[in-house]
Design a protein around this nucleic acid. Structure first.
Lengths: 143, 143
DNA sequence: TTTAAATAGGATAGTAAGTATCATTTATAA
DNA sequence: TTATAAATGATACTTACTATCCTATTTAAA
């Protein structure tokens, strides 16, 4: 068993990436994070962002949210919790709802799969999009 | 209010696509469906598959599963139900678990989003991958 | 029943998110 | 100090999916 001379270095890029991700609770996409980090490290490459996010996911520092939507999103909170996704703008937020452990057991009884866990995502309309929608409706009424 | 001269035709391609999708319960990807349909319609284009799947989703005939994983999957059963995804091979199956309506209400109390519904996906290892894993472990032991 | 309009199909080009490659730089260890 | 490993940034590539375009088919009108 030869341990390879491998160790995850806390480079400036990784540190700033993690700082920026921890700063927000909207679970940004890789591209959004790239833009955020670019303000502090203008020469950073998009590849570095993707690479380091993946490394941090693998080492359990952050979570990758792979549910609905086109793009993957990232989350600095690693404790299991649920999310809402806005069906209009795609934004994601946390839902501070007790994680349902028992549902995993129930599912395990119903299938021949070896169940590991579950992902729960709520869908809805975010406050901003609700407002925008209301404004639009009002506009149509007066027209 | 001018209704456009639009109506969804039940073409051969659409019919066969729907038949093939209804035949299986593994929720195939567009690409998998393409291969399935190709056996009966060798000249069909991949674009036609994507286009018609989208049309059928829009008209509510089938469901698009946009949860975890790289690709979207399709489901001929439109009643709300849950799924398991194999974390090894990506295969998806149904979980015949009672849909938790009350969880949506609970979530609505915890967020400023206007909650519409929820998506629940279990993760685990499918029987085939469990077997393959077991065989691999055994091989390593004897080596 | 021919003709016109709408719709659909197949081929192909284009997008966009994400991944792989590679030369260069930076950090660590001998 | 030097050798080795690892990380970076630039760029090329892959893949799932979408848009475009021209042809074919279906439907409706004359």
């Amino acid at each position: 068993m030869n341990t390879p001379p491998s160790m995850v270095r806390l480079t400036t890029q990784r540190q700033i990436l993690l700082e920026e991700l921890s700063k927000v609770n909207t679970h940004p996409t890789a591209c959004e994070l790239y833009k955020m980090v670019q303000k502090r490290l203008p020469r950073i490459g998009l590849g570095t962002v993707y690479r380091n996010l993946e490394i941090m996911v693998d080492s359990g520092i952050i979570l990758k949210l792979e549910l609905g939507g086109e793009q993957k999103r990232f989350d600095a909170t690693t404790e299991p919790h649920y999310h809402v996704r806005c069906t209009v703008c795609g934004k994601m937020d946390d839902v501070t709802l007790q994680v349902q452990e028992e549902i995993t057991k129930k599912a395990a009884e119903k299938t021949s799969y070896k169940i590991i866990g579950h992902l729960l995502e709520f869908t809805g309309e975010c406050p901003d999009c609700q407002k925008a929608q209301a404004a639009k409706t009002k506009e149509a009424d007066t027209a």
